[in-house]
């Protein structure tokens, strides 16, 4: 089985490119903390509201520029701790988001940001996001969950 000289060059260039991608995301994930979303803890999907993690919903300041944001999703609503469905976050804040669902799988997407996680029954999804850019962002569901899927939303305001 013979390979043309140019094909060997191409495979070297192509594989090299893929290796570069893997190194960039790998270093960023394992050494710089830029991980995909993961599980903070598991719980009983039929008793979510009773769980410790979900007693206080909404934004809570932990430290200088460190916050936690706890949100509960259900069909077809995001409970962000207030009926206005608005969360105000200071620009530059690092927020650890904790969210889960009380029923089916929901998405958790703050449009225009990297905050994008799946919420699955029995798991508390989490990731840490720094809100670098001011603006008004819509939190919405991007995983089909039933007839009201496209009606689930809240507003995240990142303020100066």
């Amino acid at each position: 089985m013979n390979m043309h000289k140019y094909e060997k060059w191409w495979m070297l260039f192509g594989s090299g490119t893929l290796l570069i991608f893997l190194i960039v995301v790998g270093v960023s994930a394992f050494y710089m903390g830029s991980t995909p979303p993961y599980c903070a803890t598991t719980l009983d999907p039929e008793n979510v509201r009773e769980h410790d993690s979900f007693q206080e919903l909404g934004l809570k300041q932990l430290d200088d520029n460190e916050y936690s944001l706890t949100i509960l999703a259900s069909a077809f609503d995001y409970d962000v701790g207030n009926p206005e469905k608005v969360i105000e976050i200071p620009k530059g804040a690092s927020v650890s988001i904790y969210a889960t669902t009380t029923d089916v799988i929901h998405g958790f997407e703050i449009a225009g940001t990297n905050a994008n996680m799946m919420l699955e029954p029995g798991y508390v999804s989490t990731n840490r996001y720094t809100f670098k850019n001011a603006g008004e962002y819509t939190l919405l569901c991007n995983e089909y969950c039933g007839v009201g899927h496209h009606l689930m939303a809240a507003t995240i305001k990142v303020v100066e």
Binding site: F21, V25, S28, S34, P36, P37, M117, N142
Partner: peptide, 10 residues
């Protein structure tokens, strides 16, 4: 591409 998927997932 691992965490970059958050830009486009769903």
């Amino acid at each position: 591409s691992n965490q970059m998927n958050q830009v486009v997932h769903n």
